[in-house]
Nucleic acid binder design. Structure first.
Lengths: 187, 187
DNA sequence: TTCGTGATGTGACATATCTCACTTTAAATT
DNA sequence: AATTTAAAGTGAGATATGTCACATCACGAA
């Protein structure tokens, strides 16, 4: 089960068995059922999560109690309310299971210990952060350059499996359009 | 002039004089006039830039030759076509001066040497990458939750100086609306 | 099975935004 | 100062999207 994690890290940086053992001491395993919350708005954010199996949604709830999907996280994805995690403040978003989900997670303290204790791990996080930034920037560009239909088609192309696993109303929220509009795009 | 850079880095990590001297060997200075390009779409991206003075726009040009502002960069901001920079591929965006601009810059080679030679610098880049990601995510949330007027007001609040220095047509492009719509928001 | 809930589709109308054309104003260039 | 160019405002009509209401369908719980 931690094999997923090792394989994931080694896509970026090869590890010795000792190094991976060191890394493992900083992770713990957790299991959640569909509809359970890993992070709830207003609570402290103790962990950053790596999804082994299952599916999560990161949700921002606005003043009028409307939910907006900031992102999804499936197998091999990292997720958290990163701002709250890094600054150790209250969650501004919630992280909820769309399916039964198994994760590995670490605390900020463990994060620092991994970075300090193993430079490779700091390098890994740097790569991940860079790619995370690039992903967000790509999403912004997609929004600047494309209409709803095009953005939906790009998502379909980019994450076809997601569309199978997630209700269309959530896909619509992720794309920033109403579920009715998304429904009409297909026809 | 490099004092800006040192101060900027030391907001995150204190440096000794030797460390800063090491860092400096990897930066070079460049000056550009208004309307000049630091990066042109299709060309290789040799550098990542730190703005000492002046103002830049990062532009994505779509298939129908319409320009979209991905971001602005003013004093103390970093900018590049990061994807092209890190992967050493051709620029998909262009980076152009809105004012006479002075920058410090480094190559990918220098980036790697700095990370390898000074762990503090890798830590610095990690922090920067994390904050960059968070900034993009905040922009996405702003787009998901707010209408054009609200997004404009948020920008005004967040970067009041930017609105002074940049034509409204470019602000509109950054917000993903037409210049006419932005013009009508004020009234 | 039966019931209830959530997911999806669709019509009708309101609203936001875009596009195009034109004018006015401000700024840059000679 | 004169001329040119860029920026900004505005009207009118087309288009995209949102909202509300309702109907249908699928699926899991009792």
């Amino acid at each position: 089960m931690r094999a997923n994690l090792r394989e994931h890290i080694e896509k970026i940086i090869p590890l010795t068995d000792e190094e991976f053992a060191f890394i493992c001491t900083h992770f713990s395993t957790k299991k959640f059922k569909k509809h359970q919350f890993l992070i709830q708005k207003g609570d402290p954010v103790k962990y950053c999560y790596f999804v082994i199996s299952g599916l999560l949604k990161l949700v921002y709830t606005d003043d009028s109690a409307k939910e907006h999907i900031v992102s999804f996280a499936m197998e091999d994805w990292w997720e958290s309310d990163y701002y709250a995690f890094f600054t150790q403040t209250e969650a501004t978003m919630s992280l909820e299971c769309l399916e039964d989900t198994e994760v590995l997670c670490f605390s900020l303290d463990d994060y620092k210990k991994m970075c300090d204790g193993l430079q490779k791990m700091e390098r890994f996080f740097l790569e991940k952060a860079n790619f995370g930034f690039l992903g967000s920037q790509r999403r912004i560009i997609s929004w600047l350059t494309s209409n709803s239909k095009e953005r939906y088609e790009q998502l379909l192309k980019q994450s076809p499996s997601l569309i199978q696993r997630v209700p269309k109303s959530l896909i619509a929220s992720y794309l920033g359009i109403s579920r009715e509009t998304l429904s009409r795009l297909s026809s």
